[in-house]
Amino acid sequence: MRSPCRALLILLALLTPLQAWAMDMRIEGQSVILSGAVDGSECTALGAILSQAAIRTVVLTNSGGGNARAGYCVGDLIRERGLSTVIRGRCASSCSRMWLGGIERTLEGPNCRVGLHGNYASSGGLLPDAPHRLRSWIPQRAPHVDRVLMEQWTSLPTNNWMMYFYNDKAEVCEGRACTPLAGRNARNAGLATQ
């Protein structure tokens, strides 16, 4: 008797989607809060929310990124809808593409940060076409972006490198080892609008 029950439990576990890996999306007033890893389903899920609720702001929180295509798609969707974006906490990699879609882009508080780098293969190496794509996409969303900094972050050699921008500072990091970018921040780098 144990064997059929165990087999049924295993079958159910295999058939159950792994929603824990997808970004969490919840509505708060006229905002939708997105948090967690970007798995690729976000554009469809956010599109469904936007078709049913009067959303003005997308809040991005505690995301280290993930699926690059989803980042671009959500960023484009946010821009098409004329929404604002806010970061609470950390929003890095593909999450930064989502944030850059906002008409108005802010970082909420001194410890909030946006992390930018290129697009990478599963091995961690920079994809050959990634810098070109980013260098054409980013200025369409952030026309005042510092192009020298953009050249640097889109060419970071591996996915363990990141350029972080805060309200009052910026730094380039390889893993946990970070070097300040003197005098730079999210606003004067042309990323945040407020």
Rank of each mutant, 00 (worst) to 15 (best):
72 Y>G: 00
182 A>W: 03
106 T>R: 12
148 V>M: 09
71 G>D: 01
96 S>N: 07
141 R>N: 15
119 N>R: 14
63 S>K: 06
119 N>S: 14
116 L>T: 09
124 G>N: 13
184 R>H: 12
93 S>E: 07
56 R>H: 12
57 T>R: 13
72 Y>P: 00
155 S>G: 02
83 L>S: 06
187 R>M: 13
82 G>Y: 10
125 G>W: 15
74 V>A: 03
183 G>K: 07
108 E>M: 13
149 L>Y: 04
55 I>E: 06
125 G>S: 15
184 R>V: 14
110 P>W: 04
117 H>W: 10
142 A>C: 13
104 E>K: 14
179 T>M: 08
193 T>R: 03
108 E>C: 06
77 L>A: 06
186 A>M: 11
75 G>T: 00
111 N>D: 13
156 L>K: 00
108 E>Y: 11
165 F>L: 15
81 R>Q: 07
128 P>L: 14
115 G>W: 02
84 S>F: 09
81 R>M: 04
85 T>D: 06
101 G>L: 09
145 V>Y: 04
180 P>N: 03
76 D>K: 07
180 P>I: 05
86 V>S: 07
142 A>K: 05
131 P>A: 07
56 R>S: 14
192 A>C: 09
54 A>D: 15
53 A>K: 07
113 R>W: 09
152 Q>S: 08
148 V>W: 08
80 E>K: 04
116 L>P: 01
161 W>L: 05
138 I>F: 07
70 A>K: 04
172 V>P: 00
52 Q>D: 13
133 R>I: 15
89 G>R: 02
180 P>M: 05
146 D>I: 07
78 I>R: 00
177 A>N: 13
73 C>W: 04
166 Y>K: 02
